[in-house]
Design a protein around this nucleic acid. Structure first.
Lengths: 213, 213
DNA sequence: TAGATTGTTAATCGATTAACAATC
DNA sequence: TAGATTGTTAATCGATTAACAATC
């Protein structure tokens, strides 16, 4: 094992996978801004990851950069996608068609990374049957059918806290193994299910500590 | 220095501050759910931080737990707030009164941590003058005046990517040092300014890697 | 050639983990 | 008392950083 954290056929370490995802996000945004190359230093300033660490992470998988120039944005996007094995498209379902749900549905943020929102679910009869962009709003009663038919791998919860556990339970029962929770609810799920809870205030608290201290 | 990462009057390390913020978020939610005590094991399952690490982090600052019982939720909230020096109230300004802005304004997520949204800014004449809850929507032209008058310490950007850099520039000029960026835009700011960019898709990518691999 | 930036090494520091006595 | 969980130690592993030769 010459490359700590790096890998041939081995699984990536948690830290490496998290950082690579982060690089990818910045690269895609840089590409939108018309950038063709990017240095480890620039990546560092945007990801808050040390530039040596970035070069080390990448060099574990190949020599992607050009000395004196930096990394090609396009080619690095492709390489990282290969490493993360997320070159494909994945279908996700969004729960909740309120302000937050609509904001998520109309943003590029998931689409840019190969996630397609194929269905939005809501309980309100007023919303069911309408569309957000191209995506139909369906009744939550159809959850099980849609998850199976559309091969949903991720459920994104943009529902009120009171409703979140119920939706999570139904997703788990329908064999969805990755849940992205935008509600404040602490979700109880079996160990094989991954929950990520979005907590913007946490980052703010911690930024503020360094500002105040 | 007996406590690595712990501190008396020293600054917390980045990692410790980030983890403490995370514990705090879960504790506050647990309190809402009526919990009075919580074990390091439970905190671990909700924060994805190892339980030994949690006990170690906390024991650096005092003996907050009861063996055989766990930690008192209320008292631990108070202790962590003391450590993070964020017991006070802080005023923040929200930019953008679209779907995302309205979702943020109507959630408890910042209020729970002592952040009060005192103003929402938008460019649309249709929205300026209205309110979201109790918070007035103002014209972005008033940015400088409001920031000074209301002692705004954080700017939260829920504007389209194209508008984000402009708002950031004006916030920096108005001496705001912490920016929370919900847009996809990569922001250029001077080194003394902290930017946190919310990237939900990044977490999803990385969760998915472990699901697929 | 001169300047910039990668790829890589070596040294240090913090995070992670298992284990377990102390004690509620 | 018995069971649970903290507080703490020790060992290991990964992250961080500085430094610099290689090279575009």
């Amino acid at each position: 094992m010459s490359r700590p954290g790096g890998a041939g056929s081995e699984r990536l370490s948690l830290g490496v996978a998290a950082r690579l995802s982060r690089y990818l996000q910045v690269l895609i945004q840089a590409r939108k801004m018309g950038r063709e190359t990017i240095s480890s230093q620039e990546l560092a300033s945007w990801t808050h990851v040390n530039s040596t660490q970035i070069r080390r992470d990448l060099s574990g998988f190949g020599k992607f950069g050009k000395r004196g120039v930096g990394y090609g944005v396009d080619s690095l996007v492709a390489e990282i996608r290969k490493i993360l094995q997320t070159s494909g498209q994945h279908n996700i379902a969004l729960f909740g068609a309120g302000n937050l749900g609509q904001a998520i549905a109309s943003s590029d943020i998931f689409a840019d990374h190969g996630f397609t929102i194929v269905s939005i679910f809501d309980t309100s009869p007023k919303l069911v049957g309408k569309k957000v962009g191209d995506v139909p709003i369906r009744s939550i009663d159809d959850l099980e059918k849609v998850v199976a038919d559309e091969e949903i791998v991720v459920g994104v919860l943009a529902v009120p806290a009171e409703a979140a556990q119920d939706v999570a339970d139904r997703l788990v029962a329908a064999d969805v193994r990755v849940i992205f929770n935008y509600s404040e609810q602490l979700l109880d799920v079996p160990p094989e299910v991954t929950v990520h809870t979005s907590s913007p205030a946490v980052d703010l608290l911690y930024a503020l500590y360094f500002y105040l201290a």
